[in-house]
Simulated assay, not measured.
Amino acid sequence: MGVTSKKKLTQYERLAGTLRDRIAAGTYARGDKLPSEMELMDESGLSRSTVRHALKVLVDEGLVRTERGRGAVVAHTPALPHKKQVF
């Protein structure tokens, strides 16, 4: 039976994915400060605990680090896949 189940993402997973995509796309480069928790809360409509959970996921992945007095900063930018050149 060809039934595939899609796992519904939680709110923190969706926010982490959005931030991950922005980092991969270059919207936020290595060393850039991410929006504050309050800005992310306003933008997403999510609670502070959900925003913090999303940021923790990115910290655990090594994409983001937190700095005292500065907030969340991009620690690593994943390499984008190279396209093969056809001659």
Rank of each mutant, 00 (worst) to 15 (best):
T4H: 03
S5V: 10
K6I: 12
K7S: 13
K7W: 02
K7M: 12
K8S: 15
L9S: 13
L9T: 05
Q11G: 14
Q11M: 15
Y12H: 15
R14N: 14
T18C: 08
L19P: 00
L19S: 02
R20P: 09
R20C: 13
D21R: 11
R22P: 05
I23N: 02
A24D: 15
G26A: 11
G26S: 10
T27E: 14
T27Q: 12
Y28G: 00
A29L: 13
R30V: 15
R30N: 12
D32Y: 10
P35W: 00
P35S: 04
P35H: 02
M38G: 04
E39D: 12
M41P: 05
M41V: 09
G45A: 06
L46C: 08
L46Y: 13
R48P: 07
S49Y: 11
T50M: 13
T50Y: 09
V51C: 04
V51W: 00
A54L: 01
A54P: 07
K56G: 06
V57D: 11
L58Q: 00
G62S: 05
L63R: 00
R65V: 06
E67T: 06
E67L: 10
V73S: 01
V74K: 00
H76Q: 09
H76Y: 10
H76V: 09
T77G: 06
T77V: 12
T77F: 02
T77K: 07
P78C: 05
P78N: 07
H82G: 08
H82Y: 04
K83Q: 09
F87T: 14
